[in-house]
Design a protein around this nucleic acid. Structure first.
Length: 588
RNA sequence: GCCUCCGUAGCUCAGUGGAUAGAGCAACGGCCUUCUAAUCCGUCGGUCGCAGGUUCGAAUCCUGCCGGGGGCACCA
């Protein structure tokens, strides 16, 4: 929550508490009707009707969930529960809707409940009931929108996991942005989340990396299969500086020199990656080294990989054929069995994956989420199979999310084509906020292209500015209000009757549901889309409803109440941007 | 060939079985002596790839086809 903390409008701090007390004492305690509460009330009503008919049906709040109708004439909230239940109760949907509506109209805070179309129940709230939301939001502050839909779930979320043999590039940025935002959203819904980066620091790629850097450090020609890129030269120079005796050592013991150069280069590169991620406001709880999976215990215990193979063998999933050791992943839906140990006795990458999975399981995680690019699509089957072989539920204990790759200005990113753009370059060019927002704005499975010119533009082409501007506006209003003497000493929610106020309040009420939905679906882009709608509603309200009195006008309850609404809008914009890892500046 | 994702306005894309399918951009036209015009308002713009099916109701679910991306290693 660091982002939103620092972004708090300054004048919101001191006087607010006193204002709150005053407002509380002079305002009536209105029945608040949030969509959640309305759904619960409708569920009670429908349950009564079901019972009166002697039917045995269980009605949950899910069944009577209300949604914001697209058409303003359809009220504030609409439910299709009558249509869903009519058949099961053997009644006409409109008739059932009518009975629900009659009782719903008696709920405190409901102004009207009408039946429309094939059986919709359209509910309109009292202005005061809706307006009460503004105060609730301000009082909840940073916690508004947080919920417990996922409470009790211990989730491991792995993403990025780029090889530490080079800088992060565009190909990794989408998962960095999406993964970090997903972690924040899951936490906001009450889940206990560990975000994790798997470091592929074992195997032939590391050796290749080591040889490349050593050659650079010694000023030799690059080896045949060396990593390309200027960063290898830079790493070589740093290695040479930090190991002055490297050339001497290489002459006498090439392998020892390689080992030292490789290890140092690895540490330097990993530190760079961590720095880049930090600048991108992406946080990992755990950096998990693949190497530790290959390392035997100090008392000579088998390595985690060996132990994992043994465990799966005991479960009867391992067999030998063609000089290799296999795991029968086809028992769990994979399209072919996989090799654990090659003919030459070396573990495959997949064996490490299996050991890593078991590590996550042993560390107590229920759901393990993998965020992978579409180029790893082939991994779904085998990862899922390992979960099954480990005795986990392949439906609930593992989730492999596959996302589409990113284009840059329409040009497909390709290592071979050499048009790699490093994350650091992108950050310098576009800034973290614009980049993160843009990457988090689309569903993972939707193709996405990064248009540099658009992201640099400070216009509506670039939705992050639209949202940030709305937030900055709430802060400007707040500052001006303080100057003009508009305070929060009264709160009269029944005065918030303008069309744009109803709309804005509706958006504020939707936010907790949006967070919960984004968490359950693992779709942080829903937060971004919501923020754009909220910002639009705020801008329209700002355009129509003044917080500050005009010249010669006296300050009244309406101005003060609107100040609460302004604060509430700013708070929700801040909370939402924080879930995306985007800052909420007080001025633009 | 098999698996998977995508196909929605001129462009980029939203849309968790609901009402007349939305937003931004582009194009055209409006609003600043009033809290930030990076805002707002209006107009134009659609066989939701095609064809069946499921049902009170389908852009959404199922099947088939067409078009595009990606994947199908004893690589890492």
């Amino acid at each position: 929550m660091a982002t939103s903390g620092q972004a708090l409008c300054s004048s919101l701090r001191g006087p607010l508490v006193a204002d709150r007390e005053r407002a509380r004492s002079c305002a009536l305690d209105w029945m608040l009707v949030t969509p959640q509460e309305l759904a619960a009330a409708l569920a009670r009503i429908l349950s009564e009707l079901v019972a009166e008919r002697g039917a045995e049906l269980i009605v949950t709040e899910q069944d009577t969930a209300v949604e914001r109708p697209k058409n303003r004439e359809h009220g504030d909230w609409a439910s299709n529960a009558a249509m869903k239940f009519a058949k099961r109760l053997g009644v006409n949907p409109r008739e059932l809707a009518q009975q629900i509506a009659e009782r719903a109209e008696r709920i405190d805070g409901v102004a009207r409940a009408e039946v429309a179309g094939p059986g919709f129940i359209n509910v309109t709230l009292d202005a005061a009931s809706a307006g009460e939301t503004a105060r609730r939001v301000v009082e909840a502050g940073e916690s508004y929108g947080r919920g417990d839909a996922l409470r009790g779930q211990k989730i491991n979320l792995e993403f990025v996991s780029a090889n530490p043999t080079g800088p992060l590039h565009l190909g990794h940025t989408r998962w960095a942005a999406l993964g970090d935002s997903t972690a924040r959203v899951l936490r906001a819904a009450g889940a206990e989340v560990t975000s994790e980066y798997y470091i592929n620091d074992a195997g032939s790629q590391m050796n290749k990396f080591g040889r490349s850097v050593l050659a650079a450090a010694l000023g030799e020609d690059a080896p045949e299969d060396a990593y390309p890129g200027a960063y290898i030269q830079t790493l070589g120079e740093r290695v040479r500086e930090q190991i002055p005796e490297l050339a001497e050592l290489a002459a006498s013991d090439r392998d020892a020199a390689l080992a030292q150069a490789q290890e140092l280069a690895y540490q330097l590169q990993l530190a760079e990656i961590k720095d880049s991620l930090e600048r991108f406001n992406v946080h990992f709880d755990v950096f998990f080294s693949e190497r530790t999976l290959h390392t035997p215990g100090e008392q000579g215990e088998p390595s985690p990989i060996a132990a994992a193979v043994d465990r799966l063998r005991e479960q009867g999933h391992v067999f030998e054929a063609d000089d290799a050791i296999w795991v029968r992943t086809t028992d769990f839906g994979d399209d072919k069995d996989r090799v654990f140990t090659r003919g030459n006795g070396v573990y495959t990458y997949f064996a490490a994956d299996a050991a890593y999975y078991l590590s996550k399981k042993d560390r107590g995680f229920g759901e393990k989420i993998y965020l992978l690019g579409a180029d790893h699509h082939g991994y779904i089957g085998r990862l899922t199979a390992i979960a099954g072989a480990a005795g986990d539920d392949t439906e609930t204990d593992i989730t492999v999310l596959i996302g589409q790759l990113v284009n840059l200005n329409g040009a497909r990113l390709s290592k071979r084509a050499g048009n790699i753009v490093e994350l650091d370059d992108l950050l310098e060019w576009l800034g973290s906020d614009a980049l993160r927002y843009w990457l988090a704005r689309y569903p993972a499975d939707s193709p996405l292209s990064l248009d540099g010119e658009k992201l640099r533009s400070r216009s509506n082409d670039n939705p992050v500015f639209y949202v940030q501007y709305a937030h900055a506006r709430t802060c400007a209003v707040d500052r001006n209000a303080a100057q003009a003497g508009v305070d929060r000493s009264s709160f009269a929610p029944e005065l918030l009757t303008h069309e744009t106020e109803t709309e804005l309040l509706g958006k504020l009420q939707q936010y907790p549901g949006v967070v919960a939905g984004a968490a359950e679906l693992r779709e942080p882009h829903r937060i971004a889309r919501f923020l754009e709608e909220l910002a639009a509603a705020y801008h329209r309200w700002y355009d129509n409803c003044r917080v500050l009195p005009l010249a010669g006008e006296e300050i009244g309850d309406l101005h003060r109440t609107r100040l609460w609404l302004n604060d509430a809008a700013g708070q929700v914009l801040r909370n939402g941007l924080d879930l995306l890892g985007v800052s909420a500046p007080e001025r633009l």
